[in-house]
Amino acid sequence: MSTAPQNEPRTSPTPSGAVALPSVGARGRARSGTTTDVALVATFAAFIAVCALLPSIPVAGIPVPITLQTFGVLLAGVVLGPRRGAAAVGLYLAVGLAGMPVFAQATGGLAVVAKPSFGYLIAFPLAAALAGYVASLARRVRPALRPFVLFGAAMSGSLVFIHPIGIAVMGWRLDLDPGAAIALGATFVPGDVIKNMLVAVVAAAIFRAFPDMLRVRR
């Protein structure tokens, strides 16, 4: 009757081995609600910075290693929801523009405004917000189908905002004709499909470890 293991299922060990306290229901979570939002937003902004700064990772099966900046941006949107996701990306951009080198290749400061790739940065918060909004639909489907909805959410962010705005600004800055700009921009799309599949897999794992992250969306 008194051995420990029978109590174990109360808290579910997360894949990392850390034990998550069961999230306490509506009455219980009032207190740390806003501070948890601040912490999630700041931590995901840091996560995006690390994704942008880390050397690109090798993926079995494709020759070119992939960089993770847009992975971080869309994961923030999908995991946190539209407002907190956009806030995390906005915080990341604000800190980068203020002069901390947190953008890809350790750049930062106002110089990025002048670069042809600035359109991609402008598109990030919008993409995170849209991805977060669409990802909320994953609540309504069976867990087995969730990764597909999450992939769709990430793809919508890429296709509606990141590529169109990124390509438009690049074409304008480099004085390219629209066809050439689109062709140049389209070279990133296959990599994005792989990254967005990773977003879906990782976000699904997070929602399994912390089910309330899918329930409480802001």
Binding site: E8, P9, R10, L21, R27, G28, R31
Partner: peptide, 21 residues
Amino acid sequence: GANGSGKSTLARLVNGLVLPT
């Protein structure tokens, strides 16, 4: 108490990090 026995929740109740149901 054992892991998962509820002792962390007991502690968090004292400063209102967890509110009683």
